[in-house]
Protein backbone atom coordinates (compact mmCIF):
# COMPACT_ATOMS: atom_id res chain seq x y z
CA UNK A 1 0.00 0.00 0.00
CA UNK A 2 1.42 3.37 -0.95
CA UNK A 3 2.44 5.50 2.00
CA UNK A 4 0.68 8.59 0.59
CA UNK A 5 -2.70 7.00 1.14
CA UNK A 6 -1.98 6.63 4.83
CA UNK A 7 -0.72 10.21 4.95
CA UNK A 8 -3.88 11.49 3.27
CA UNK A 9 -6.04 9.49 5.68
CA UNK A 10 -4.14 10.80 8.71
CA UNK A 11 -4.32 14.39 7.41
CA UNK A 12 -8.08 14.07 6.91
CA UNK A 13 -8.63 12.65 10.41
CA UNK A 14 -6.44 15.36 11.94
CA UNK A 15 -8.33 18.14 10.14
CA UNK A 16 -11.68 16.71 11.22
CA UNK A 17 -10.35 16.90 14.78
CA UNK A 18 -9.26 20.52 14.25
CA UNK A 19 -12.70 21.43 12.89
CA UNK A 20 -14.32 19.79 15.90
CA UNK A 21 -12.16 21.78 18.31
CA UNK A 22 -12.90 25.04 16.50
CA UNK A 23 -16.62 24.59 15.84
CA UNK A 24 -18.00 23.03 19.02
CA UNK A 25 -18.57 24.60 22.44
CA UNK A 26 -19.02 21.51 24.56
CA UNK A 27 -15.78 20.88 26.47
CA UNK A 28 -16.20 17.10 26.35
CA UNK A 29 -16.61 17.08 22.55
CA UNK A 30 -13.50 19.27 22.25
CA UNK A 31 -11.62 16.76 24.39
CA UNK A 32 -12.81 13.88 22.20
CA UNK A 33 -11.63 15.72 19.10
CA UNK A 34 -8.18 16.04 20.69
CA UNK A 35 -8.20 12.25 21.12
CA UNK A 36 -9.10 11.96 17.44
CA UNK A 37 -6.07 14.06 16.48
CA UNK A 38 -3.79 11.92 18.67
CA UNK A 39 -5.10 8.82 16.93
CA UNK A 40 -4.45 10.29 13.49
CA UNK A 41 -0.82 10.84 14.50
CA UNK A 42 -0.63 7.31 15.92
CA UNK A 43 -1.88 5.84 12.66
CA UNK A 44 0.72 7.80 10.71
CA UNK A 45 3.54 6.68 13.04
CA UNK A 46 2.59 3.02 12.61
CA UNK A 47 2.39 3.43 8.83
CA UNK A 48 5.86 5.01 8.77
CA UNK A 49 7.21 2.21 10.94
CA UNK A 50 6.12 -0.25 8.25
CA UNK A 51 7.73 1.72 5.42
CA UNK A 52 10.43 -0.50 4.01
CA UNK A 53 13.28 0.57 6.23
CA UNK A 54 14.49 -3.01 6.59
CA UNK A 55 15.77 -2.94 3.02
CA UNK A 56 17.69 0.28 3.67
CA UNK A 57 19.35 -1.04 6.84
CA UNK A 58 20.17 -4.69 6.15
CA UNK A 59 21.93 -5.32 9.46
CA UNK A 60 19.00 -4.28 11.63
CA UNK A 61 16.27 -6.86 12.02
CA UNK A 62 13.69 -4.69 13.71
CA UNK A 63 14.17 -1.35 12.00
CA UNK A 64 11.17 0.88 12.50
CA UNK A 65 10.23 -0.52 15.90
CA UNK A 66 10.74 2.94 17.41
CA UNK A 67 7.62 4.24 15.69
CA UNK A 68 5.44 1.63 17.31
CA UNK A 69 7.00 2.29 20.72
CA UNK A 70 6.30 6.00 20.30
CA UNK A 71 2.67 5.10 19.64
CA UNK A 72 2.68 3.11 22.88
CA UNK A 73 4.02 6.09 24.82
CA UNK A 74 1.50 8.43 23.17
CA UNK A 75 -1.26 6.12 24.39
CA UNK A 76 0.19 6.21 27.91
CA UNK A 77 0.34 10.00 27.92
CA UNK A 78 -3.19 10.21 26.46
CA UNK A 79 -4.55 8.04 29.26
CA UNK A 80 -2.93 10.27 31.90
CA UNK A 81 -4.17 13.38 30.10
CA UNK A 82 -7.75 12.09 29.97
CA UNK A 83 -7.85 11.31 33.68
CA UNK A 84 -6.67 14.82 34.66
CA UNK A 85 -8.69 16.60 31.96
CA UNK A 86 -11.95 14.91 32.85
CA UNK A 87 -11.35 15.77 36.51
CA UNK A 88 -10.93 19.41 35.47
CA UNK A 89 -14.14 19.28 33.40
CA UNK A 90 -16.06 17.78 36.32
CA UNK A 91 -14.76 20.52 38.61
CA UNK A 92 -15.73 23.17 36.05
CA UNK A 93 -19.21 21.67 35.84
CA UNK A 94 -19.49 21.79 39.61
CA UNK A 95 -18.62 25.49 39.65
CA UNK A 96 -20.58 26.76 36.63
CA UNK A 97 -23.22 24.02 36.06
CA UNK A 98 -22.27 23.93 32.40
CA UNK A 99 -19.57 22.49 30.18
CA UNK A 100 -19.68 25.45 27.81
CA UNK A 101 -16.15 26.66 27.12
CA UNK A 102 -17.42 30.21 26.58
CA UNK A 103 -17.92 30.50 30.35
CA UNK A 104 -14.18 30.15 30.75
CA UNK A 105 -13.28 33.64 29.53
CA UNK A 106 -12.70 35.12 32.97
CA UNK A 107 -9.00 35.58 32.31
CA UNK A 108 -10.04 38.29 29.83
CA UNK A 109 -11.51 40.54 32.54
Amino acid sequence: MLIERYIYLAIALFCIGIVGVLARRNAIIIFMCIELMLNAVNLLLVAFSKMHLAAALPGKANAGIDGQLFVFFIMVVAAAEVSVGLAIIVMMYRNTHSVDVNFLNRLKH
Binding site: M1, L2, I3, E4, Y6, I7, Y8, I11, A12, F14, C15, I16, I18, V19, V21, L22, A23, A47, F48, K50, M51, H52
Partner: peptide
Amino acid sequence: GVVAGGCLLLVLVAALKQAEVKGKIAML
Protein backbone atom coordinates in the same frame (compact mmCIF):
# COMPACT_ATOMS: atom_id res chain seq x y z
CA GLY B 1 -14.08 26.77 12.04
CA VAL B 2 -14.82 24.57 9.05
CA VAL B 3 -13.05 26.99 6.69
CA ALA B 4 -10.00 27.11 8.97
CA GLY B 5 -9.82 23.33 9.14
CA GLY B 6 -10.25 23.11 5.37
CA CYS B 7 -7.40 25.57 4.86
CA LEU B 8 -5.16 23.43 7.06
CA LEU B 9 -6.14 20.36 5.01
CA LEU B 10 -5.28 22.23 1.81
CA VAL B 11 -1.89 23.35 3.13
CA LEU B 12 -0.95 19.86 4.34
CA VAL B 13 -2.00 18.18 1.08
CA ALA B 14 -0.10 20.81 -0.93
CA ALA B 15 2.97 20.25 1.25
CA LEU B 16 2.73 16.51 0.59
CA LYS B 17 2.95 17.17 -3.15
CA GLN B 18 6.60 18.19 -2.70
CA ALA B 19 7.52 15.49 -0.19
CA GLU B 20 10.15 12.86 -0.81
CA VAL B 21 8.13 9.99 0.59
CA LYS B 22 5.99 9.68 -2.53
CA GLY B 23 6.06 6.23 -4.04
CA LYS B 24 7.35 4.48 -0.91
CA ILE B 25 5.46 1.41 0.17
CA ALA B 26 4.04 0.64 3.61
CA MET B 27 4.30 -3.12 3.84
CA LEU B 28 1.03 -4.69 4.87
